[in-house]
């Protein structure tokens, strides 16, 4: 075998690729499910924290700020390992899938809370005053007047953050989640050939290239302002 043949045999081995395609496809689905769950729960938790923070209860706000700073400072992998390997010693154990989902959710929650909060505070005081002066309550004003404007401003940074967090699903492979990378790794081990990794990379491209395109489109679309 000369160099090129060896390269093709290692990385583009059709027989191996065909054999493990179903595994990678299953990993692809799992990645999508995990990513969707993380984005939904992370953004919902982030928005809820930002809304709680807007009530302006001092001790509560300190707690929120401490929490989000903590999860923004820690690398996601460290959080996953702590949940998966650390918590069982305290009697709480969870699957690798749950640990990955929860960790990425906490990280996305923390980044998106800061983004939502910046959006809420960027809405002019006059908007609050106009709505409150008509007799609309605090929550009504927040929901109908302030949040729609805040969220609109935050869509581009949120999209970018959500895309980058879903790439973190690959970290699940460390705790035995058979998402794309995890299933590619086991296929590589079984076949003693790295071609499944190539398949995995292709699967990531199929997943993320459209998402990045979507991110660009959203960014352009919402780059209005008055």
């Amino acid at each position: 075998m000369d160099g090129l043949d060896g390269f093709i045999f290692s990385f583009f081995n059709l027989r191996v690729m065909v054999e493990y395609l179903p595994d990678i496809a299953a990993g692809f689905l799992l990645t999508v499910v995990l990513a969707v769950l993380v984005v939904i729960s992370g953004l919902a938790a982030g928005l809820s924290l930002a809304v709680l923070r807007s009530f302006g209860v001092r001790p509560l706000n300190w707690l929120i700020i401490f929490t989000v700073d903590l999860f923004r400072a820690l690398p996601s992998l460290v959080i996953i390992m702590l949940l998966f390997f650390g918590l069982p010693t305290a009697g709480i154990s969870m699957s690798g899938f749950t640990a990955t989902w929860l960790s990425l959710t906490l990280v996305l929650m923390s980044f998106s809370e800061e983004i939502f909060w910046a959006g809420i505070t960027a809405v002019q005081k006059g908007q609050w005053e106009a709505a409150r002066s008509t007799g609309l309550g605090y929550l009504g004003t927040l929901r109908l007047v302030v949040l729609p404007q805040a969220i609109r401003m935050t869509i581009p940074p949120l999209t970018n953050r959500a895309i980058s967090i879903t790439k973190g699903t690959a970290l699940g492979s460390v705790v035995g989640v058979s998402e794309i990378l995890g299933s590619a790794q086991s296929a590589m081990a079984f076949s003693s050939n790295p071609s499944p990794l190539t398949l995995g990379a292709i699967a990531y491209l199929i997943l993320f290239v459209p998402m990045i395109g979507l991110g660009r489109w959203i960014e352009a679309r919402f780059a209005w302002r008055r």
Partner: peptide, 15 residues
Amino acid sequence: RRRIGMVFQSFNLYP
């Protein structure tokens, strides 16, 4: 407040 309208210098319409 329902019974007191207010009009502001900077309009403050919901954009």
